[in-house]
Every structure is written in C-alpha cells, then in structure tokens.
Simulated assay, not measured.
Amino acid sequence: MDLELRHLRVVCAIEEAGSLTRAAASLGTTQPALSAQLRRIEAMLGGALFDRGRSGVAATPFGELVLARARAVLPGVDGLLADTARAARHRAAPDRVRVGSVGAPLLGHLILTIRALLPGAEVTARCQYAPAPLLDDLAAERLEAAVLGDSPGQELSPPGGVELHPLVSEPVFALLPAAHPLAAREEVSLGRLVEEEWAVPRPDSDRTREYWSTALALTGRRPRTPYEAEGRQLIEIVRSGLAVSLCQATFLEVPGVVVRPLAGAPLWYRHVLGWRRDGPLAGRGGEIVRRVGADYLAACASSPVYARWRERHPRSAQLAR
C-alpha cells in the first residue's frame, strides 16, 4: 500500500476534529472503518500518529511531524487541482470573454481581435477611469481581459494569475480650447501651459494627476486647478474656454477643442493589455499583441496631429516587442 493524498487528508481531518467519531462523521464514514484506516496509515508510515484517550485523540510527536508535512503539501496540491480544473473549463468552453478598459483607443480593437480568435465567444465590455479596479477584477476572475495604462515610474504590477503585455508608449499632448492663442502653435511649451487654469482628473488610484503634478513641478510653477473632471465633462470645460488640460496623443479632436504636442515630449503614457493566464486567451498573447498593435498604428494615422508628430519622431512611440 502506497501513501496517497487521501491518507494525508484523513490524518488532518482526525487532528482537526479531535476524535475519531467526529472525524468519521465529517468524512462520511463509520468510526470502526476510520480506525481501521488509521491503523493501516500508521503501519505504512512506521509509527503511531495519535494517542487515543477518553476525551479524544492527540497527535504524538511523530504525528506532529506528519501533520506539519501534510499541511505544507496539501494547499499546494489543492491549488494545482483548482487551477488545472479552471483552465480545463475555460479551454473546453471559451464561450464568454468579459473585457474591461480604461479610457484608451484600444477597446474596440481588442474586442474585434477576440471575436476573430474566438468566433463563438460572447464578448462583453465595461469601462473604468483607473486601471487598479480592472486589475482587481482580472485577479478575481470577474474579467478575462482588459485594456490598461500607466505612466513612467508608476508601472503596473501583475497580480497572481494575470499576464500584462505593454503595447506602446506614446507622448501626452495638450488639450486646448480651439480659440486659445496657443492653439495656433505647432507645439506648446509645458512652461507656458502651466500659466493657464487647468481641468484635471480627480486624485485616485489611476495616479494620472500625481504624474502630471510631478512633471509640472519641474517648471517651477504650480498650476491653478479649479476644475476636477474626467471624460466628457473635462472636454466640455476645455471646450468652453475655461481651462486647458492634457490628453493621450491618439485623442481625436472634436469641434471646439484642439490637440497640440508638448515641446520636448516631457510626459508619456503607456498602453498595456492584460488577460488571465488560465483564461480563454491563454497562449494567444503574441497574436493579440500583433493584431491590436496593427490596429493601433491605423488609429494613429487617423489622428492628424499625432501622425505628423510621429513623422517628425520616427524612433519614438514604437510598438513593444
């Protein structure tokens, strides 16, 4: 008779219950059958594991050694079994892919890529302003994939079970009212822009505002930031001529606002793709990055300001390899 994992589970169950009678009930067997099994386990290991008494059982020194090893081994085995079972389920039936995204131009490209790779899958999506909640959702298996982003010095760390693949870093541009005097320039100095009133994102786990503040502090001046907003509200504040702000280089101009490069490209933003290692996209990372990267380059061409900037800086903002 060879030692098996089930024997270690029996020993741990007896120690946890404190008596053979209670352990037998928890294991769904009878006390005589469990006693006989314990005797066989002890004979196989070469010593008594428990002292029996009227009040129950207590581990012997030899039993404590066996229990310590069992407690070290079983969680890892249980984790392995759970992970492989989950991976098998995902590979057998990749019928649902839940995607999350920060405010970036890659969500549509990622969804189209997933549909091409998994034509039978149902793809759903939801957005967040910050990447941290999306990372949490990936780790907790509430999402299978996500479009994320970070800034220099604030790089994201993958939680357990999640793969992160940087796609490209692009410069951050100025977002201006169309009638603003700086809008007539080819590029804008950050030192000049800091003199204006600003609309900025709320301080949160995204840390975008923290990154902006660090760069603006290097100008020696502190900007006035009377407006806190994101998304459509921030754009409306800029469109109304109340403030200036910053945006991703791929931001598409809308009536009333213009995008201009910052002189010297002092600020950068990195696009990152993430998915679960045991999810339906596992093993397809290279194809996902290739397809979404190609779509990103096409999006760059549809943003005239960014396209001109890339022509002047051909070695910058290259796709990650």
Rank of each mutant, 00 (worst) to 15 (best):
P152Y: 12
L5Q: 11
P158I: 01
A87V: 08
D78V: 01
R69V: 13
R89F: 01
G285M: 06
G18S: 11
E4Q: 14
P280Q: 02
L252Q: 15
G18R: 09
V200G: 08
R86S: 05
V200M: 14
D295S: 12
G241A: 01
G18D: 10
P158T: 06
G63P: 12
G283L: 05
V97T: 08
A59Y: 12
Q248P: 13
A217G: 09
V10F: 05
M44W: 07
V188R: 02
A307E: 00
A82E: 00
L175Y: 07
R224M: 08
W212H: 15
F62K: 13
R54N: 13
P261Q: 02
D78C: 00
L138H: 01
A174V: 03
V97A: 09
A58W: 14
Q233F: 15
A125H: 13
E141R: 12
T113L: 04
P181F: 03
I14S: 07
A140L: 06
V73Y: 11
S189Q: 02
L3A: 09
L67C: 12
R98V: 15
R315P: 10
P133D: 06
R207V: 09
P131Y: 03
A87F: 09
T208C: 12
R54L: 15
S101N: 14
V102A: 03
P32L: 02
E4G: 11
Y227D: 07
L246D: 06
A43M: 02
L246W: 07
L110V: 04
A23H: 08
R115K: 15
S26Y: 09
L74Q: 04
W309L: 00
R209N: 14
V123H: 12
A116Y: 11
S316W: 14
D278N: 00
P314Q: 02
E144H: 07
G46T: 00
R6E: 15
L38Q: 05
F251V: 08
L8P: 06
S302R: 15
L216M: 12
P131N: 06
L167W: 02
P171C: 10
A82I: 02
Y211E: 03
R9G: 06
L135E: 01
R192N: 10
R284E: 01
A140F: 04
Y269H: 10
A199G: 08
